[in-house]
């Protein structure tokens, strides 16, 4: 996620809005990114339609069927069943719901304030509030996200909302820093000076002139971060500070299923593969977006 600073150097200051066709063409060239995009669309569709397409929707909730417990993968249960007789495939599909909700909420409440703060701090560089914003960001960056999220989640009651808040708290400064460093460069470009000369308001310059040039690196970061948020969410649930049971959560499923390794491997291995695939898909997509906005195709 850090190497973005490197990538962003390649981003040419061009008007993105007028070049959709060109960007799609570039994106399409990268087969791996197309695969990533396809996987993500598939997973989101699965998550959205979970109650209707999963084979045993009741397995997602409070459901016990000991007669059917610890069954290996079969046609009736492609991913097998867990210790309570719940269908693992169903719980994986519902697990995507939780993961994507987490990603949506966390990135939703971090990206917009993070980017706005970075724009303001970068545009008004060296003013007192700019310094204040960047020092604040430095402080939050000083605590590793997983640690901060764990600490907040443990001091407050572990509800889904608190988990999301905890992760968001650790996340916004990365956007602020990214946007800040680019804004301080772009603000001296000729087209920004021209806009200023024509009497454009600071708000217009920041959001309509500067921001579009940063979309490439912001979108790349969002895509790579989506994987990280899922990872941290899974880690929180793995230690029992995530969503409370019986919520079908991929991290919880891996942690609870790992007790039954290696004989009943399917309980934890399939959720683990699901987590790996989601993160991989987001990374492939992120690489594609980065290449799409960079000047040269490798």
């Amino acid at each position: 996620m850090i190497s973005l600073v490197e990538y962003s150097k390649d981003v040419k200051f061009s008007k993105i809005a007028h070049n959709y066709g060109k960007y799609w063409y570039k994106f399409r060239n990268n087969k791996l990114s197309l695969l990533g995009l396809g996987l993500i669309i598939l997973f989101i569709a699965l998550a959205a339609l979970a109650p209707w397409i999963s084979p045993y929707p009741s397995s997602a909730g409070l459901y016990v069927n000991f007669a059917n417990s610890l069954k290996p993968p079969s046609l009736a249960h492609p991913f097998g069943t867990d210790e309570l007789g719940r269908d693992v495939l169903t719980r994986v599909i519902f697990g995507f719901r939780y993961s994507f909700t987490l990603v949506g909420v966390v990135l939703g409440i971090t990206v917009i304030p993070g980017v706005t703060l970075g724009l303001v701090a970068g545009y008004y560089v060296k003013r007192w509030f700019s310094v204040l914003i960047m020092r604040m960001a430095d402080i939050f960056v000083a605590v590793p996200p997983l640690l901060l999220a764990l600490a907040v989640a443990s001091v407050m009651r572990p509800t889904l909302l608190h988990v999301m808040l905890a992760i968001s708290l650790a996340w916004w400064p990365w956007y602020t820093r990214l946007v800040y460093s680019q804004t301080t460069t772009i603000r001296n470009e000729d087209f920004v000076r021209a806009a200023r000369l024509m009497g454009a308001s600071p708000i217009h310059i920041m959001f309509s002139e500067i921001l579009p040039n940063e979309l490439g690196s912001i979108l790349t970061k969002i895509s790579l971060d989506a994987g990280w948020v899922i990872l941290i969410g899974a880690a929180l649930s793995f230690v029992g500070l995530g969503a409370p049971p019986p919520t079908p959560d991929l991290g919880t499923m891996i942690s609870e299923g790992s007790i039954y390794l290696p004989n009943f491997w399917w309980i934890s291995v399939f959720p683990a593969i699901a987590v790996v695939l989601v993160i991989l898909a987001f990374n492939l997509l992120g690489d594609g977006i980065r290449d799409m906005f960079s000047s040269s195709i490798r």
């Binding site: 994987g227 891996i254 390794l261 790996v276 695939l277 993160i279 991989l280």
Partner: peptide, 12 residues
Amino acid sequence: VGIAVPSFVVAI
């Protein structure tokens, strides 16, 4: 693969 596999999965 290294980026996508969580450390706790590798550990297990």
